[in-house]
Design a protein around this nucleic acid. Structure first.
Lengths: 226, 226, 226, 226
DNA sequence: AATGAATGAGTCTTCATTCAT
DNA sequence: GATGAATGAAGACTCATTCAT
């Protein structure tokens, strides 16, 4: 329950800015955001001019600057969207098996995020390419921190009920995220070091083992790929 | 021996283009590269104009285009420098303890690369920020591939001599690189998720454990940080 | 009547884009056009930079590209100006002698265009020199087509009333235009093959004869030059 | 005879610069000329850089300037080539029917030049597009003058033997050239005002008529096209 | 005579941002 | 709030020409 509580409160926190009040102002911003996302996805950040964005949105050039201080200021908003998708996927999967042991929920959560990564691939590719100003990097890290939270909680739970052992749950969570954010993304994008299913299976098994699951359990949760 | 051989031949391969013949042409290119590196480090890629680079190098605008087809064409050369530093560090550390068991050499190698990552931090930060065209991404992946090679060889050696166990040495090497490339970089850059020493220690322990070293051995090789 | 009607409607058609609405936009465009014409005339097309044009017009560099997609896009507008001058001259002259027989009107029209060619000489010289992209050539040919229309109509009229005879009125019109566009221009520009008055007189007599006017009539309409 | 004499002497005059002495210097110049022609034809004048020309010729950048003062200085040489081709065609055709009457020889000559124009079309298109400096225009006119010479001689001959009548043979020759240089070129290039065969037939008939051939003779020499 | 590295002025064009209406 | 014309600095890149070797 602590889990689903924190998940809900987190979701609420994230949502507050977009779901709550469909202000006229918020709607306009969303309209511009949608136009920007579409173009950024199609042509990339640098290649999408503000003028193209406003054309797509059907508003005047100057209007853009009523809602975003600069062109770069659009990026954190898009990063938040990605983040939101990841967290929803995790929460949904983990809550879906609320009665299962921690390691099973971990695997379920990882798989759910893997699929969310897949669904957000294009947006992430764009965000990675957008020349990341320092402020942008902060947003990225904050996202990783938020993602690590529930993962860390789950690992701690597993440590308590004896299914995991590890030195530092927080760092273990980070390492896992490194896998999701980085390795899975590249597996998807370039099929390197191996196609996605294998990369995921080996990665998950590697993680479970590092968390001290015994070999039989590891294979039960994630069978070796062909 | 195969290890040190492949290391040497790799080093030779990498070096050929730069060390061998200090052609007049190579010297000019190096001069421009140095100017570009300096400015890219100081202001970032997008913010450094070609005109600033040539001013720094003390040559004419057109001269730049005699040595690089476009401004972006400079980046792969700089990425190679970083790569070269990593590989040198690894080779040096691993060869330095040629008689030690595989897991000890792994830890030594990781630590050496950690320090090299530290030394190259600024350059890497810049390369990450430079809007990475597709070709640029290829260079990055190729770098990771080259780095994974010796790491993978060492893991295989450990599997043979019984100090490691793992499903897939190549993917395990990639995961480790994910740690080096990504997690250590961020630990250094932002002290997150934890300052570098802790992040490294926990990460290395996590890896060793995933490779099935027993607890005592893990702690002997990498003590728990305070 | 058909003649003067078509002449008027043509004039109207041409005029619509420029005379009708002195939009703010049209005015700016005209301002830039004037600056471009002045510089192109003074230094030639290639030698006139966009930056010089905007300086002359007293607007910012970027403003130019609000009105013309590229520097070359200015040329068709100037060609239209020339064309307009030719057509006005022809219409005016031919309408001025509405009661005269076809051959007399032909000669009057030719003479009027000759003078218009003279007035537009510098502009035409520039347009000829401007490296003519394919699209530019299309504009040129389209201009010739528009010019040939009334000339052809007049020749046909002459054929009907028996003052002319010819195989193909359209081609005869083209040949006459060749004379106006090409030979008269060169006569004016370089006094070759002979000074303008002689070139014109001989050319007109040659044309009239090709159209089967008898010798007396030819000489009555265009006396032999000294 | 005066005809073939003047033709020969003219040919000699033109040839002198290229045929006479295959100096080492002349050969190099020809080599560069060939490279320039090839590139100018393929990409146009402005789009062919000196650097591309020397690459094509297989010599060094600086070498170009040993043989041509500037890039534009290449054009007159190419215009001469075109001219030479026209004159050869004319001479050959007219001499080939030395016994025929003047008007038949005129038609034969015109047809020969028409075919030469066709063969040189690409080169001419390029020369027309090359921004014609004043010096370049002089070369063009000089070419027309040289072409007009034999044509004029033939017309005079025809006037003497009674097959032609005209006010001024020189101007009549110019008008005919206007047809060849201008109208035929455009008929070939754009099939306007009509495809080449029709344009040529009507043009030739128009000329013959202007030179006072009677209708039967005109049709005998050049039948009406379908 | 030949080379080819170096020059650097000059090109066109883009675009984030502002501001008067 | 919304507009969209105007800005103008900045950008990457080209290329005819020179000159030391």
């Amino acid at each position: 329950m602590t889990d689903s509580q924190s998940a809900s409160s987190r979701r609420a926190r994230l949502a507050r800015s977009t779901e709550k009040a469909p202000t006229k102002r918020e709607l306009r911003r969303a309209q511009l955001l949608a136009a920007a996302r579409k173009l950024f996805l199609a042509r990339g950040f640098e290649q999408s001019s503000v003028s193209a964005i406003v054309a797509e949105a059907g508003v005047a050039q100057g209007t853009f600057y009523l809602y975003f201080k600069t062109k770069h200021a659009v990026l954190p908003h898009l990063r938040l969207e990605v983040l939101h998708a990841y967290l929803s996927a995790w929460d949904h999967a983990v809550e879906g098996e609320a009665e299962a042991p921690a390691d099973a929920r971990l695997v379920a959560g990882l798989a759910a995020v893997r699929d969310a990564v897949s669904a957000q691939r294009d947006l992430v590719r764009m965000l990675r390419q957008a020349s990341s100003s320092t402020e942008q990097q902060e947003v990225w890290l904050e996202g990783r921190r938020q993602m690590a939270e529930p993962l860390c909680a789950l690992i701690r739970e597993g440590v308590e009920d004896g299914s995991f052992r590890c030195d530092d749950a927080w760092l273990a969570a980070q390492l896992s995220l490194s896998l999701l954010d980085d390795l899975l993304y590249e597996a998807m994008e370039y099929e390197r070091p191996a196609p996605l299913p294998q990369t995921f299976a080996h990665g998950a098994r590697f993680l479970l083992r590092a968390l001290r699951n015994d070999e039989a359990r590891v294979t039960a949760l994630v069978p070796l790929p062909a």
